[in-house]
């Protein structure tokens, strides 16, 4: 309530031409940033709407979403549901800028067409830039990353989420849509096999079996899967098939390794039974011998 009052007062003051330097005796913006701020969408709300009185300096990242959220509650709500939440990932200013925020639909905006994701997510960006989506999406002017991944409420990119996004632009009977389905199918395959292998490995560990080497193969398989998911963004079927097949092979070798561990254990137990057979036979013979000696 008080903040809304402050904003109104500041709006009035701002209309009269007051700048941040006038209103804020302490920490103020540099010349270039000040210019950017006066060109931004927040010009009229001034400094104190965000930099609360008494706390004029930098806003901590942990607190920032709440501050933006006071005026942008819907986006804040969505953001708290996302994987970027909890201060570890990106916060508002990482995508929208801070003092230079523009309307997102304008090319001057940092978050224009959500291409900003590539600033941190370099792997996907690298492949995306080589693929048909880059030019295609540019031509139609739709959002890039956010078309499939969403923006504020971003979740971990599961197959389910991403596959359902294809239909947003590609009708179901088009070769593009079919390709997406095919790729989705390939990925579902390797993802499920990988989960199965990881679960079986975890079972072995619970049984107290040492799985050092097998864990390394799992790490390799996970690495291959990650690479496959990065390559996906380039939509090059040759590359995608190659990485998927690589992941599949590594996962298969993990499954083989697990089988061989279980086989070894079974073999050892059989060996133990045989050994006990020989031992018991010898003990019986010795007992008989002793009894026989007693007789003579």
């Amino acid at each position: 309530m008080i903040r809304r009052l402050n904003i109104s007062i500041l709006l009035l003051l701002g209309l009269w031409g007051f700048s941040c330097e006038d209103l804020f005796a302490l920490a103020s913006l540099e010349e270039s940033e000040n210019t950017a701020f006066t060109a931004s969408v927040h010009e009229l709300i001034g400094c104190e709407s965000c930099h609360l009185p008494g706390k004029p300096d930098k806003i901590s990242r942990a607190v920032l979403p709440q501050i933006c959220g006071d005026c942008h509650p819907k986006q804040h709500q969505e953001f708290t549901e996302s994987v970027h939440w909890s201060g570890k990932g990106a916060v508002c200013i990482d995508c929208h800028g801070n003092h230079d925020i523009r309307l997102v639909r304008k090319p001057e905006s940092k978050a224009y067409r959500s291409l900003v994701c590539g600033t941190c997510h370099l792997g996907p960006k690298e492949h995306f830039d080589l693929g048909p989506h880059k030019a295609g999406m540019e031509k139609t002017g739709v959002l890039a990353c956010a078309s499939c991944h969403g923006n504020h409420s971003i979740q971990s990119p599961t197959l389910e989420i991403v596959s359902s996004a294809c239909a947003g632009c590609h009708p179901k009977d088009t070769p593009e849509f079919q390709m997406g389905q095919e790729v989705g199918g390939l990925f579902t395959g390797i993802r499920d096999t990988l989960s199965l292998a990881a679960a079986r490995l975890s079972d072995l560990q619970d049984q107290g079996i040492s799985i050092r080497k097998e864990e390394q193969i799992l790490e390799d398989a996970r690495g291959a899967f990650t690479r496959a998911r990065l390559v996906w963004h380039g939509l090059d079927m040759v590359n995608i098939r190659a990485e998927v097949s690589n992941t599949g092979e590594t996962t298969q070798s993990l499954l083989n390794a697990i089988s061989s561990v279980l086989d070894d254990r079974r073999l050892r137990k059989i060996g133990l039974v045989v050994v006990w057979g020989i031992i018991l036979a010898n003990i019986i013979l010795l007992l008989l011998k002793k009894k026989n000696l007693g007789r003579s």
């Binding site: 137990k269 133990l272 031992i279 000696l293």
Partner: peptide
């Protein structure tokens, strides 16, 4: 040979126990 046979039996037994532990409780 009497007591040594007893020792032989004991040796076989402990060998069995040792191998069982080695294989089932590494």
């Amino acid at each position: 040979p009497h007591h040594m046979i007893t020792e032989g039996i004991a040796a076989y037994l402990i060998l069995g126990i040792l191998l069982t532990l080695a294989i089932l409780a590494p």
